[in-house]
Amino acid sequence: MSTDSVFAGSIPELYDTLVVPMMFLDYAEDVAAEVASAAPHDVLETAAGTGAVTRSLHRLLPSARITATDLSPGMLDRAATVLPSSDLVRWIPADAQDLPFDDASFDAVMCQFGVMFFPDRPGAYAQVRRVLRPGGRHVMAVWGRIEDNEASLAVAEALTVLFVDDPPQFLRRTPFGYTDVTVIRTELEDAGFTDVSIRTVTHHSRPTSARDIAVAHCQGTPLAHILAERHVDTARTTAELTRLLEARWGTQPYVGRLSAHVVTAVAA
Rank of each mutant, 00 (worst) to 15 (best):
M1P: 14
S5D: 15
S5N: 15
S5K: 09
I11Y: 01
I11E: 00
D16T: 00
T17C: 07
L18G: 06
P21H: 01
F24Y: 14
D26S: 15
D26G: 13
A28E: 11
A32Q: 13
A33W: 02
A39L: 13
P40V: 05
H41T: 13
L44S: 05
E45V: 04
E45I: 03
G49H: 04
T50L: 00
G51L: 12
G51K: 01
A52V: 12
T54R: 13
T54H: 06
R55E: 01
R55A: 14
R59W: 09
P62Q: 05
P62I: 11
P62E: 11
P62H: 09
S63C: 03
S63A: 14
I66K: 06
A68D: 08
T69A: 06
P73S: 12
L76I: 10
A79N: 05
V82L: 14
L83H: 03
P84V: 05
S85I: 00
D87P: 12
V89H: 07
R90I: 00
R90F: 00
R90Y: 00
W91M: 06
W91E: 12
I92M: 14
I92A: 13
I92S: 11
P93I: 02
A94M: 05
D95G: 06
A96Q: 07
A96G: 10
Q97K: 00
D102C: 14
D103E: 11
D103H: 13
D103G: 14
D103T: 14
A104M: 04
D107A: 04
D107M: 04
D107C: 04
A108L: 10
V109C: 12
Q112H: 08
F113I: 00
G114E: 03
M116E: 12
F118Q: 12
R121V: 13
P122Q: 09
Q127A: 09
V128K: 00
R130E: 08
V131H: 05
L132A: 02
R137P: 00
G144M: 04
I146F: 12
D148S: 11
N149Q: 02
E150I: 07
A151N: 14
A151H: 14
S152F: 11
S152C: 08
V155P: 02
V155L: 03
E157R: 13
T160H: 03
V161S: 11
V164H: 13
Q169K: 15
F170A: 09
F170W: 12
P175D: 10
G177K: 01
G177M: 07
I184D: 07
D190V: 00
D190N: 10
A191C: 03
A191T: 00
D195E: 14
V196S: 07
S197Y: 02
T200H: 13
T200V: 04
T200G: 08
T200F: 02
H203G: 12
H204W: 10
P207C: 05
R211V: 07
V215E: 11
C218A: 15
C218Q: 04
P222Q: 11
L223G: 06
L223R: 07
L227C: 09
L227A: 12
A235M: 05
E240R: 15
E240L: 15
R243V: 01
E246F: 00
Q252I: 01
Q252A: 15
Y254Q: 12
V255Q: 15
L258K: 11
S259Y: 04
S259A: 13
A260P: 04
A260V: 03
H261T: 01
V262M: 02
V263G: 08
V263W: 09
T264N: 05
A265Q: 10
A265R: 01
V266Q: 14
A267P: 02
